[in-house]
Design a protein around this nucleic acid. Structure first.
Length: 560
RNA sequence: GCACCGUUAGCUCAACUGGAUAGAGCGUUGGUCUACGGAACCAAAGGCUAGGGAUUCGAAUUCCUUACGGUGCACCA
């Protein structure tokens, strides 16, 4: 039941629609004031009366009932108190009925959303900077799926470009099969780095030749490239599996290499293309932007060219409702340009393209630099977190079964959660101290809370079922109200493309549960009604915590 | 130089998008265990929301401006 709607429908204000009232209903900062509130300041202008007077009038016109038991007018706010038991019953029984689906609204209704995220570059290992796009994209993927959308996860592979000519050249000079086989992707990366540091003019020319050979489908160059690609995909897939990340398409740069010419033709046809300094551009000066480069003076295509082709291909293929690009804010201008060019081409769906920008990761002593060896590899972060979780489990709970498996859930949770907890636009300074901290506002805290709840439930001799007529105490009711917010939080997270809302919700919920847990005895409750109610509440909380973490891609162990 | 983003407690961050007394975690100090898991809980200290102006019933939130930091600005992606 939608309490805001119920309240909005009961209040009649001339000239103000029920929907307007509905959207004004808020939650008071303190439960003592009430459970819902309607600020009356907006109406003051319309009626030329003080908000306090309006609130008073609305109060006396409002008939309390079994649902809304109390109304008060304070400082221009109209505050409502609900029947705690009825409210709790509605929330808890909804959770009991919907279980893993609690929170899903179905707003997606089968509409398609494409999400471009993570984007593997062939021959480059993941460093900590790749974590954000991967887990933010992954969380949005699960969130939209949960809300009933048809989601297409796209890994836009970086598998085309002169750097692969360089790589093959480096391999031919310095590499050998055994080394690459044992060293995997890192040894390929080392070859590439070495090329950039040491290659002379002669090797540069050679690299350009190798690139042409790959393009023309030459046997050996292509075989090497495919081998490097396989090594890369094996490496990233192992990471994706741990992080619970999936894709539906790996169409990348190479895939679009033959799909750009029609776009260029279309630009030409629509008289958008101009020649400037030997290059082909779309002039965007009218829009306060630098020109968008389509073709280099040597005729080669560019980043923007591929993104134009990709957007058009995706629209034709998936007929998306929205297409998201989970890419760092460094590329704000690039996407603004590409979206503008599509708009100028007359694509009315250009407004459905969204750049979901997030902040950058640096190290405590500055920006990462592969060449200087100043880099934190993602797989190292993951394994350190899992190792630490294992050590702690061994200390605290040495008798536990499946310690390895649980340590994985805990350690991986910490890695994922750490990257999702703050607003995505914030820059992050990576530190091992922070990701390895398992106290306070962390996934470990949430998982621990689940383990507690689980432990209580497993000790209960009978299952909890909601009693008739029970007056929840404030700590209990605070917890119920938090549970009730879950669907709304998910909707906001989807609306803002902001997984951090869900992460923060989970921590808030865990905090409220822990307060309840300390304050109220569950198994040894004063009476049977309390026991029943608290067991139901515990199980509803556990379900909701699991749902939130699972959208973020984090598992919940029964014990830890 | 121009454009965009950021600046909130010692540190890392919230704040229902303009609402009531700006809240958490970490750190500091002091408490809570004969228990349903202490990876927890409670309490205290800590704030002129970077500075200044404007808008209005009301601003951390909107606008202008200054400072500091980040990012981008033509043939890399």
């Amino acid at each position: 039941m939608d309490y805001k709607r119920y309240i909005a429908d009961k209040i009649k204000i001339d000239g103000v629609s029920a929907d307007e009232i509905y959207s004004s209903v808020t939650l008071p900062p303190d439960t003592q004031m009430g459970d819902f509130a309607l600020p009356c300041f907006k109406f003051a202008k319309i009626f030329r009366k003080s908000p306090a007077v309006i609130a008073e009038e609305l109060k006396s016109a409002f008939n309390v009932d079994k649902v809304i038991t109390e109304v008060s007018a304070v400082n221009g706010y109209l505050n409502f108190k609900v029947n705690r038991f009825e409210f709790s019953k509605a929330v808890i029984s909804e959770i009991e009925n919907r279980k893993d689906n609690f929170g899903a609204s179905g707003v997606g209704n089968g509409k398609t959303i494409c999400i471009d995220y993570s984007s593997v570059n062939i021959a480059k290992p993941f460093h900590i900077g790749h974590l954000s796009t991967t887990v933010i994209g992954g969380a949005l993927y699960k969130l939209f799926k949960f809300l009933g959308y048809n989601v297409v996860g796209i890994n836009h592979l970086g598998d085309y470009g002169t750097q692969f000519g360089k790589l093959i050249c480096a391999y031919k000079h310095w590499g050998n099969k055994e080394e690459v086989e044992s060293g995997g992707i890192h040894s390929i990366n080392d070859l590439y780095v070495r090329f950039n540091n040491e290659a002379d003019e002669e090797m540069q020319a050679e690299a350009r030749e190798y690139f042409k050979l790959i393009e023309s489908g030459d046997g050996e160059a292509n075989t090497l490239f495919e081998w490097f690609k396989t090594l890369t995909m094996d490496y990233v897939n192992a990471i994706y599996e741990k992080l619970n990340i999936t894709f539906d398409s790996y169409a990348g740069e190479r895939f679009y290499s033959d799909k750009m010419q029609p776009v260029i033709d279309e630009l030409e046809e629509k008289r958008l293309l101009e020649t400037s300094e030997g290059a082909k551009i779309v002039d965007l000066e009218k829009f306060g932007m630098p020109p968008c480069l389509i073709l280099r003076s040597d005729g080669a295509s560019l980043y923007a060219t591929r993104d134009l082709a990709a957007a058009i291909f995706r629209k034709n293929t998936y007929d998306f409702y929205k297409c998201l690009y989970v890419v760092a804010y460094q590329q704000n201008l690039h996407f603004k340009q590409v979206f503008k060019v599509l708009e100028l081409m007359g694509k009315d769906w250009a407004s459905d393209l969204v750049h979901v920008a997030y902040g950058m990761v640096s190290l405590e002593d500055g920006a990462m630099s592969t060449r200087k060896g100043k880099v934190v590899w993602l797989e190292d972060v993951i394994s350190k977190c899992i190792d630490k979780a294992y050590v702690i489990i061994n200390e605290k709970n040495p008798e536990l079964e499946n310690k390895k498996e649980i340590a994985e859930k805990v350690g991986l949770g910490a890695v994922i959660f750490g990257a999702l907890y703050n607003n995505k636009i914030k820059d992050i300074v990576f530190s091992y101290d922070k990701v390895l901290s398992f106290e306070g506002e962390t996934s470990v805290y949430v998982q621990y809370t689940c383990a507690r709840a689980n432990s209580v439930l497993s000790k209960a001799t009978t299952e909890g079922s909601l009693p008739e007529n029970y007056e929840p105490e404030t700590v209990e009711f605070e917890l119920v109200k938090q549970l009730a917010q879950f669907p709304e939080i998910l909707a906001e997270a989807a609306d803002k493309y902001e997984p951090s809302y869900i992460a923060r919700f989970a921590v808030d919920l865990a905090q409220k549960f822990n307060k309840f847990y300390i304050d109220c005895k569950i198994l040894a409750a004063e009476d049977e009604k309390s026991r029943q109610f608290r067991l139901s509440l515990t199980s509803a909380t556990l379900q909701t915590l699991k749902n939130s973490l699972s959208i973020l891609g984090i598992g919940v162990p029964d014990k830890m």
